[in-house]
Simulated assay, not measured.
Amino acid sequence: MALQDQNTPKTPEEQKEEYKKNPMRLYGIYSSIVFQMLAIIALGFWGGKKINDYLELPNDLLTVAIGLSGLGLALYSTLKQLENINK
Rank of each mutant, 00 (worst) to 15 (best):
A39T: 09
T78H: 04
T8N: 08
G28N: 03
L38P: 08
K21M: 02
Q4T: 12
L38M: 14
R25Y: 09
N86I: 02
L55G: 04
Q36F: 06
L38W: 10
L26G: 04
L38D: 06
S31R: 09
T63L: 15
I40V: 13
G28A: 03
R25C: 03
G48Y: 01
V64T: 13
N7L: 14
A74M: 10
L38N: 05
Y27S: 09
A65V: 12
E17R: 09
A74C: 12
Q15I: 08
L57N: 11
G67N: 07
N86A: 09
N86G: 02
L38C: 10
K21R: 06
T63H: 06
T8E: 10
A65N: 05
L75A: 15
M1I: 14
L55R: 06
L68F: 15
E17Q: 08
L38G: 15
G28D: 06
Y27V: 08
I66S: 02
K87D: 11
W46P: 00
I85C: 04
L62Y: 00
T11L: 15
K10Q: 14
L71N: 05
S77R: 02
L79G: 10
Q15G: 12
N86D: 13
P58H: 07
E18R: 05
L82R: 12
R25T: 07
E14V: 05
E83V: 04
L55H: 11
K20A: 11
L43D: 00
K16M: 14
L68K: 10
Q36S: 11
M24K: 06
E13Y: 04
G70M: 01
K20N: 09
T8S: 06
G44E: 03
M24V: 07
K10R: 15
Q4V: 13
N84E: 15
P23A: 11
G67P: 08
I85D: 13
N22T: 05
L79D: 05
L55N: 09
K10G: 01
S77V: 03
Q81E: 15
T8L: 13
I51R: 04
Q4C: 10
T8Y: 08
T78M: 15
L43W: 00
L57W: 05
A2R: 13
L82Q: 14
Q36V: 04
L73H: 01
G44D: 05
S69K: 07
L3P: 01
P58A: 02
L71D: 04
N52A: 04
L55A: 10
